[in-house]
Write a protein that binds this DNA or RNA. Structure first.
Length: 938
RNA sequence: GCUCAAGUGGCGGAAUUGGUAGACGCGCUGGAUUCAAAAUCCAGUUCUUUCGGGAGUGUGGGUUCGAUUCCCACCUUGAGUACCA
């Protein structure tokens, strides 16, 4: 009987779906295990063979855990809000919901044919109102919360109001805006309702503010920092400029320290942790305030080196610093103004690309050194960033290279405050082993002591204090897009009002056009029914807006990361209409045990999701404050492009080995025209494009035409995309799954070459043959021999270790070895083949399910217990010892394992081959490691 | 520039409490079967060799009886990050 993968795979996929084989129960006595993939954005292009890699790995692990007796949650869904559907809508007028629905159908079909054990009854889609109801709900919770640094968690805004009512805000230790006014309890109660609202907004965890945002004119929207790469938009590579806009922001900075600390409690890849650590950017130092000569104002700076404060010889402000225009003297006005204008013109990208050029301008003003009382010049320079720290630095040229370069360039003095350090060529930034000099009370001290004493003195004298600073900025949460979650917000007297949670979801309205309005409002500005009636609590037509009971709704939508920041909790109870998920389900499933996805989400999704999880934990919604215990980044699968060589200015192609004789240019050809031996199907190539129809070909001697190959990113334009549909049709899903795992270590980037799949395909055919004699299924119930059991048990041991270590590539070779060895023994014993099928079933679920049932079983193999390894089958009585001379293995010798060291040494030394190797020399030393090796020195 | 990771046959890769380098597969070579092809099966495939053997895991050094594995320096590639005060 032939191995017919097409029929087998279709049948079992149908069986699993009909029997809901992989539906997870929310109540079970079994231990739980939650395996999750990062859910995909359903793009119009569908899947290529690189996409399922992580899904296959997680599916193997999920199936393995079921065999091991776990109640496994392994759901899948779609991150279905996003830009491509919207841009398609702008071009074609097609509603993004329709495009998205179509794309999801394609995705589902492609995923289904690979045989994943997803519990599809739990599917979520971020663009479904039943889902984004909870995205809106979380937004309201954030709005109604503030961060109390005393309790170090988010609390309800009502606790803040009651503090204000009792004692004003002097005692409040909160994470909030910087420009907060202070007020007493009496003043608070005297404030108008609007004023109170305005103050509270400065404390809320999501808040409206005029912020400098990254505005992308080409996309017509703002972008978050992590959506910008090298100064241009991550998507499309468009220019990005700084612009002031009123936007919703998320106070993620409140969680900076906890996001940092939490990294120590989770098993995530070190590079990913490093990039989050770097993104959060904690630095410890001090805030110091410098008075400005002749002004009431002072300049605050953040420094990590307060020990070098006596080395300050000037100060530098960012050109955008608010004090610049105020303190600049008349004499310097022109120079400063032209410098400010010049820097404003330069894009972020230019400024970043050009780090070496030193530029700046003197303001004419002086600051007073807080310790020495000396006057120091105040400069402006674009090496100081407005967005970091306070936008101003105390410049210590002897200890910081940038300050040093600036001072040299503008002839500013460079006082040396280090003992025995030469600073004639460069600054001395190293803080280890230095001794401070010329620094009043700090002189003679080492770095650590000087640092502590400097902060102590600043605090005592009242112009500075120790502080931890973070690079992490609050996250802009508004997008000027259509295809995203609407905010549950309307505006009354210019102040935002939350819609009561019981009226959620606020459903995205229909619009005529998906572009911004003519007066520059976001696309929702085109909606005609987009106002909130506070009496009837429903969305009504804009024409009813009277600013008394009917008010305009928010026109922005939420960013892409909103829906993906909590979806893993929703899978636990996806159809619950009253809560994100029930307490019981959240309590049972807790968090993700294994999360698999790409490393590109390191500082986006994975940071925001941790932030929301911690917030939801503070609010008592979820039971744990990290959402994923273990995370693995699967590597990218690259394409192997094929090139043909065309003679310049001729319609003539030259086979690979002959190009030296011609002047040729390489052009991509479709990889599907090329076989395993890199030979081109000339006919297919000719029919590919009209211009190749009459092309001439200079072939190899044997008539074949060879292409050259190169590994590149898989992309349509390089004609190297391989569609899993084609692979599944020709070789089957089991072969695809095995081959993707066989390519190499999961986390590694590796090239795809379809030719290699024949190896795993013939492995499956060999496995099939073990069960059949010609057309006839033939299985023996005789006891397995010692040798057969040895094969089975060494395979159990290795495969179990490999899966636990996520080393899926090596277990595929182990299966091949086992089948090769059993084939050699002509083994068809049930006792040997049944455990082998179970071992293999996570990798190749269809063929094993088929053979399992052919063996007479009536329930799915996925419920069979994992075979138990018994070491007694691997006990050996003899060892084939490698005999080395000076560490080089020269021959092997089979010896019983129960020999003593001395006996082994004697036998080896007496052996004629040893004598031949020694050629009469006497060995200096003989190392015998019983059971391992013999090494003869001399 | 900084940080991290990785360099092993023609290719993907295997081997680490230091102990037989190249498992498994692709490709390639030869053979069997076939009218022929596909499929299948068998043998071989790191390099070199005077067929005894010798060399060999990016380069150079070190530790060790013994190093792909540990240490130092360098080279190359990839990823991330970048005026962070």
């Amino acid at each position: 009987m032939q191995y017919n993968h097409q029929e087998i795979e279709k049948n079992w996929q149908k069986y699993w779906a009909e029997n809901q084989t992989f539906k997870a129960s929310n109540t079970s006595d079994l231990p739980k295990y939650y395996v999750l993939d990062m859910f995909p954005y359903p793009s119009g292009a569908g899947l290529h063979v690189g996409h399922p890699l992580g899904y296959i790995a997680s599916d193997i692990y999920a199936r393995y855990k079921r065999h091991k007796g776990f109640n496994v949650l392994h759901p899948q869904g779609y991150d279905s809000f996003g830009l491509p559907a919207e841009q398609y809508a702008i071009q074609t007028g097609q509603h993004p919901a329709k495009t998205t629905e179509d794309n999801i159908k394609t995705y589902r079909r492609q995923l289904d044919q690979i045989g994943f054990s997803f519990d599809w009854s739990r599917e979520v889609r971020t663009s479904n109102p039943e889902y984004y109801k909870w995205t809106q709900w979380i937004f309201i919770q954030l709005f109604n919360s503030w961060y109390n640094k005393e309790s170090d968690k988010a609390e309800d805004i009502s606790t803040l109001i009651s503090i204000f009512e009792k004692e004003g805000n002097a005692t409040v230790n909160a994470v909030c805006d910087e420009d907060i006014i202070s007020f007493s309890a009496e003043e608070w109660s005297a404030f108008s309702a609007a004023k109170k609202e305005e103050i509270l907004l400065q404390y809320r965890l999501t808040f409206l503010s005029d912020t400098e945002v990254n505005w992308c004119p080409a996309l017509g929207t703002v972008l978050a920092n992590d959506e910008i790469v090298n100064g241009v938009s991550e998507r499309g590579g468009h220019a990005v400029v700084r612009k002031k806009m009123t936007q919703w922001s998320m106070r993620i900075s409140a969680y900076a320290q906890r996001l940092l600390d939490g990294l120590n409690t989770i098993d995530w890849p070190q590079p990913l942790k490093d990039s989050q650590t770097n993104w959060i950017g904690r630095s410890q130092g001090a805030m110091v305030s410098f008075k400005i000569d002749g002004f009431e104002d002072s300049i605050s700076v953040f420094t990590t080196r307060p020990d070098t404060i006596f080395g300050v010889s000037f100060m530098t402000l960012a050109p955008e610093h608010e004090l610049v225009s105020k303190i600049t003297t008349d004499a310097q006005k022109e120079a400063v103004a032209s410098y400010v204008e010049a820097t404003a013109k330069r894009s972020e990208r230019d400024r970043m690309a050009d780090v070496k050029t030193i530029s700046g301008a003197f303001t004419g003003a002086y600051a007073i050194h807080p310790f020495s009382g000396e006057k120091v010049q105040i400069w402006i320079g674009d090496y100081v960033l407005a967005s970091y720290g306070t936008g101003a630095v105390m410049a210590v040229p002897c200890g910081d290279q940038r300050d040093y370069d600036f001072a040299k360039h503008f002839n500013i003095p460079i006082p040396n405050i280090f003992e025995n350090v030469d600073i004639s060529e460069a600054a001395h930034a190293d803080k280890e082993g230095i001794i401070i000099a010329n620094s009043d009370f700090l002189s003679g001290l080492k770095y650590k002591k000087a640092l502590k004493l400097a902060i102590y003195e600043m605090e005592k004298r009242g112009f500075g204090y120790g502080k931890v600073n973070y690079r992490l900025r609050d996250a802009v949460f508004s997008r000027q897009r259509y295809w995203g979650e609407p905010f549950p917000v309307y505006y009354r007297d210019g102040m935002p009002q939350m819609i009561d949670a019981k009226y959620l979801p606020i459903v995205l309205p229909d619009v005529e056009k998906y572009l911004p309005t003519e007066d520059g409002k976001p696309p929702l500005g085109n909606a005609e029914v987009w106002a909130w009636n506070t009496k009837t609590n429903e969305v009504v037509a804009n024409e009813l807006i009277d600013y008394e009971t009917v008010f305009p709704l928010e026109l922005n939508t939420m960013p892409g990361w909103a829906g993906s920041s909590y979806y893993f909790n929703r899978y636990m109870d996806p159809n619950n209409d009253n809560e994100i998920a029930s307490k019981a389900n959240l309590g049972y499933w807790q968090n993700i045990d294994l999360y698999i996805g790409g490393s590109e989400h390191a500082t986006g999704h994975l940071l925001y999701a941790r932030f929301w999880q911690k917030f939801l934990f503070d609010k008592g919604v979820v039971p744990v404050d990290e959402f994923a215990k273990k995370l693995i980044n699967q590597g990218m699968i690259l394409g192997t492009s094929a090139f043909v060589f065309r003679v310049e200015n001729e319609n003539k192609f030259v086979s690979q080995s002959k190009i030296a004789n011609y002047k040729v240019q390489a052009i991509h050809t479709d990889v599907s025209f090329v076989n395993a031996s890199d030979e081109l199907d000339i006919e297919a190539f000719k029919n590919w494009r009209v211009e190749f129809k009459d092309a001439a070909f200079i072939t190899e001697e044997d008539g074949s035409f060879k292409v050259s190959r190169e590994v590149e990113k898989m992309s349509k334009s390089k004609y190297n995309v391989v569609n899993p549909d084609d692979i599944v049709a020709e070789y089957g899903a089991d072969a695809l799954r095995l081959f993707e795992m066989f390519l190499g270590p999961l986390e590694q980037t590796k090239p795809w070459k379809t030719s290699g799949i024949s190896g795993v395909y013939s492995f499956l055919k060999k496995l099939w043959k073990l069960f059949f004699n010609g057309e006839q299924l033939e299985i023996s119930d005789e006891a397995a021999t010692k040798d057969e059991l040895k094969i089975v048990h060494k395979t159990i041991k290795k495969v179990e270790e490999d899966i636990e270590n996520f080393s899926f590539n090596t277990s595929v070779s182990t299966f091949m070895i086992a089948v090769n060895e059993l084939t050699a023994l002509i083994c068809n014993k049930r006792e040997a083949l049944e455990p082998l099928l179970i071992l293999l079933s996570p990798y190749a679920p269809h063929i094993t399910e088929e053979l399992w049932h052919k063996l007479g079983h009536t329930t799915s193999i996925s419920t069979a217990p994992f075979p138990v390894f018994d070491p007694k089958h691997l006990i050996e009585s003899a060892k084939n010892y490698p005999i080395s001379f000076n560490g080089k293995m020269r021959f092997t010798l089979e010896l019983p394992l129960d020999l003593s060291k001395e006996e082994i040494e004697k036998i080896v030394l007496d052996h004629p081959k040893t004598q031949a190797q020694l050629q009469g020399r006497t060995p200096k030393k003989v190392i015998v490691v019983p059971g391992k090796i013999v090494n003869i020195v001399g």
